[in-house]
């Protein structure tokens, strides 16, 4: 149980996917303009991560032990088809949610956070339950980062920023400061 809590918190705060692994930066800088869209994208990614965790566990246990060199290709195909599949299911089951997610669902395919999650989980040899908890933590951390960034950028729109700093340079420096703040969490478990 301790182990599971540790996996969750580590992925959520200490080894946050955005601030310490630099994964999923494209949506982080591209989409995080408004808090609401950021939240939706984060939740959609978490959902896809959970399904990917199931699929990669299945692949790792039953198929890839016979052909380890196919790992990368099979993972990327799994991620792409999971996204397609989820898109179809949501469209059929709940059109309202589908409309709410909009363009962000297909965009998740090329999100390195998802593939990175699959590779990290495999490298650490997580089982099914650990993988699912790790997916929850990583997705939650990703959502947290997106929402924080979106909030800061909404404020930033209104303030008087030097002309040269506008755009990505400013976001990058904000991200650096946020990342510094998240480094503080690394002391959380060191004493115990």
């Amino acid at each position: 149980m301790d182990n599971l809590v540790w996996i969750f918190l580590s992925a959520l705060l200490i080894n946050n996917f955005v601030f310490s692994y630099f994964l999923g930066l494209c949506p982080f800088f591209g989409v995080s303009g408004r808090v609401e869209t950021a939240l939706r994208l984060g939740l959609a990614s978490t959902f896809v991560m959970l399904i990917t965790a199931l699929c990669t566990w299945f692949l790792n246990t039953y198929i890839l032990i016979y052909a380890p060199y196919l790992r990368l290709i099979s993972f990327i195909v799994v991620v792409a088809s999971t996204v397609q599949f989820v898109e179809m299911v949501i469209k059929k089951a709940s059109p309202a949610l589908f409309r709410a997610l909009g363009i962000y669902l297909p965009l998740i395919t090329t999100n390195c956070a998802i593939l990175g999650f699959a590779i990290f989980a495999t490298n650490r040899g997580y089982g099914l339950l650990e993988g699912l908890i790790y997916a929850l933590g990583a997705g939650g951390g990703f959502t947290l980062a997106l929402v924080l960034m979106a909030g800061l950028r909404e404020e930033n729109e209104l303030s008087n920023v030097p002309k040269l700093m506008k755009g990505t340079a400013m976001s990058m420096i904000i991200a650096g400061i946020l990342s510094l703040a998240f480094m503080g969490f690394s002391g959380l478990f060191s004493s115990s």
Partner: peptide
Amino acid sequence: IVMLLPPGGFLMLGLILLFFNWLTE
């Protein structure tokens, strides 16, 4: 040390982008 850690990457890239903005301007 911070430069080797993740925040250093963000800050440094931000500064380099700033420099490029200045050049194009």
